[in-house]
Write a protein that binds this DNA or RNA. Structure first.
Lengths: 138, 138
DNA sequence: CTGTGTGCAAAACGTTTGCATGCCT
DNA sequence: AGGCATGCAAACGTTTTGCACACAG
C-alpha cells in the first residue's frame, strides 16, 4: 500500500473522496503486518471513531482491493484477511490460532510455471501458504 | 482418497456407518479432479438420490476431511472445495470462473522452509496457488 | 450543488447445529 | 437393541445490499 499521503491523492484522482473514516482505516493498515480481518480493522477504528459501521469498513477494504492497494488473503477458512504489503511474498498460517505471518523468501526463480499451466492460463502470480502450528499453540 | 471399497472398511473400523448417501458421495468423489464444492456434490447426489439433504453432504465431507480422506481447499473466496487427491500437489485457479486445476509439479525440493518459519512453526506442508485467467475466460 | 460515502437495518450466502426420526450393524 | 446418520428447520458468522441522509469536492 502507498503512504496515506499518496493514497489520498490516488483516491482524489479517481474521483473518490477522502473521509475521516477512510483516513483512519488507511492509517491502521499502513505498515500493518498483522493481516487483519475486516472485524479487526473495525474494532480498531471503532476505538477512536465509535460511530463507524461495518459497512464502511467493508466498502473501504473493497475499494482498496480494487485499487490494488491491499491484497485480499484467502487463507483462513473463517474470514478474509487484508494485507497492505502488495509486494511478492508468502505466508504461514497456524492451524490452531489462525495467525498469519509473512514469509519473505523469494521463490519465484524456483517455482517455474508448468507447461500445462502456461498453455491454459494467463498467470498473474502465485502464492505459497505454509500450514502448521506455531510455537505458542504447541 | 482410498477406493470406495477400502473406505467402507475404514469407516466401519471407526465405528461409522456406511449408508447409501455416503456411498453415493464417495463414488462421486472417487477419482474426481474437478475440486467440487459442497453444493456441486449435493447437486450430483440429488440427481440420483433426490431426498438427500445439504446437512448430510456437509457432515460427510467433514467426516472425510477428519479421516484425512479429502483435502479441504481454501482457495476460492466464495466457498470451500474438496479434493479427494491427498497426495502432494498444487493448484491454479481462474479468477473469473473460479475453476480449479491441479498442478502436479513437485516443488518440494525448491521450496525450502525459511529459518524463521522453522523456528516458530511446526510446518506440516505447503500449498502453491497460481492465480490467473483461463483461456476459456480470456 | 453534485455525487460519492456513510450508517442503519435487512438480506444474502455458505455453513453449522438441535433435535426427532431412521436405519446400519 | 443401540447408536450413529439423516433431514428438516432454525441459527450462525461473515459479507453484501437498499436506501435515506451526510458531507467532501
Amino acid at each position: 500500500m502507498e503512504t496515506v499521503e499518496k493514497l489520498t491523492k490516488t483516491l482524489r484522482s479517481h474521483g473518490m473522496k477522502v473521509t475521516p473514516q477512510r483516513l483512519m482505516i488507511f492509517r491502521i493498515l499502513e505498515n500493518n503486518t498483522s493481516h487483519p480481518s475486516a472485524e479487526d480493522v473495525y474494532k480498531r477504528v471503532k476505538k477512536i471513531y465509535p460511530t463507524v459501521s461495518f459497512t464502511t469498513i467493508y466498502k473501504t477494504l473493497e475499494t482498496l482491493r480494487d485499487l490494488g492497494e491491499v491484497r485480499e488473503l484467502i487463507i483462513d477458512e473463517d474470514r478474509k484477511h487484508y494485507d497492505p504489503n502488495i509486494t511478492n511474498h508468502h505466508h504461514v498460517i497456524c492451524s490452531t490460532c489462525k495467525k498469519i505471518h509473512d514469509v519473505f523468501e523469494d521463490f519465484s526463480s524456483h517455482v517455474k510455471l508448468p507447461d500445462f499451466v502456461q498453455e491454459n492460463y494467463t498467470v498473474s502470480g502465485f502464492q505459497i501458504t505454509f500450514y502448521g502450528t506455531c510455537t505458542m499453540c504447541t
